[in-house]
């Protein structure tokens, strides 16, 4: 059942066609930002209206939707987006990565490897990886047209000169299909390698900036680096206190009013699934009310 009085998945059909045409061009030109006429959604910008429009154009009644925000399914943002599509498209929702056919995300890629049967939809605040270096749209567009990414390399090299390494730890720029430099959205650089040759289709929506882009399955996604300074995805050198995972991205959370801290998986489904399978971390059993929020 979907909500009466609304079109299926909220958007009108003309808007969906416009977004769908943009999505097909985005898939045909991996990493290139396709302009689109972004619509108002019943959530404020900054709450993932670009991702929501992409999801609304793609989702069907047989889909199973998961929404994560910083790896968690239970934040206000994730819950309201999930509820929105349950109401307007009548879809089943889940918190389990493995059960989802569409995963809308802000700030993370799930730890569970994605499959060819899944679509990952990213909410993107700033789609232009060159924007901080060049404010003029005509100039950044020219740079992409000519594959002139010297400015980006200069910026990264200055970082190395100053700090001895590239200090970017999230929204770390990538080269897609050997041609377009792309903003992966504010995911930790830890997640960048998951984009490379993923079997899943990855779609990106920036509502305020009115851009859609895509990475098809099995597409090369390289984090920018230099021969003498290869890419190193950053992660806390700790194990998850709850499930003991050493290979997942960790958040440091305050666990009591005496300043006690604990590292826990940012991906709550990953942590829950591991604990259900019997994995125990050093702080297993800790009453972690509100962890990750």
């Amino acid at each position: 059942m979907s909500l009466p009085g609304y079109n299926f998945a909220y958007l009108d059909e003309q808007t969906k066609r416009m977004i769908r045409r943009a999505l097909l061009k985005a898939v045909a030109i991996p990493g290139y930002q396709v302009p689109f006429a972004s619509r108002e959604m019943p959530l404020a910008y900054g709450w993932g209206t670009g991702g929501m429009q992409v999801t609304a154009a793609v989702i069907g009644p047989h889909d199973v939707l998961k929404v994560i925000d910083q790896g968690a399914d239970d934040t206000t943002n994730a819950v309201s987006i999930r509820r929105f599509f349950a109401l307007t498209a009548g879809v089943r929702t889940t918190e389990r990565t493995a059960e989802a056919t569409i995963i809308q995300t802000r700030h993370r890629i799930p730890e569970t490897p994605l499959t060819a049967a899944q679509i990952l939809v990213y909410q993107v605040p700033q789609p232009e990886p060159l924007r901080k270096l060049e404010p003029r749209e005509t100039e950044t567009r020219r740079m992409h047209a000519l594959a002139d990414y010297g400015l980006m390399h200069v910026k990264l090299y200055e970082d190395i000169a100053r700090h001895g390494r590239i200090t970017l730890s999230y929204d770390y720029p990538v080269l897609v299909n050997g041609r377009h430099v792309m903003a992966p959205s504010p995911i930790p650089s830890f997640d960048n390698p998951k984009m490379h040759r993923s079997p899943a289709l990855q779609l990106f929506g920036a509502g305020r900036e009115k851009r859609i882009y895509a990475v098809p399955p099995y597409t090369s996604v390289e984090s920018l680096a230099f021969e003498d300074h290869p890419f190193h995805p950053w992660k806390a050198n700790e194990a998850c206190g709850l499930c003991g995972a050493t290979d997942s991205y960790l958040d440091e959370v305050v666990v009591d009013d005496r300043g006690g801290r604990l590292f826990v998986c940012s991906d709550t489904d990953h942590c829950t699934t591991r604990r259900a399978a019997g994995h125990r971390g050093a702080a297993a059993g800790h009453a972690l009310a509100g962890a990750g929020e």
């Binding site: 299926f8 097909l24 989702i59 289709l201 098809p216 399955p217």
Partner: peptide
């Protein structure tokens, strides 16, 4: 049923273009 039929057809097209 245009909204549902168009969605189903689009998903096939998207899948075809992505693969």
């Amino acid at each position: 049923d245009p909204p549902l039929a168009a969605q189903a057809a689009f998903r096939r097209l998207l899948d075809a273009m992505a693969r």
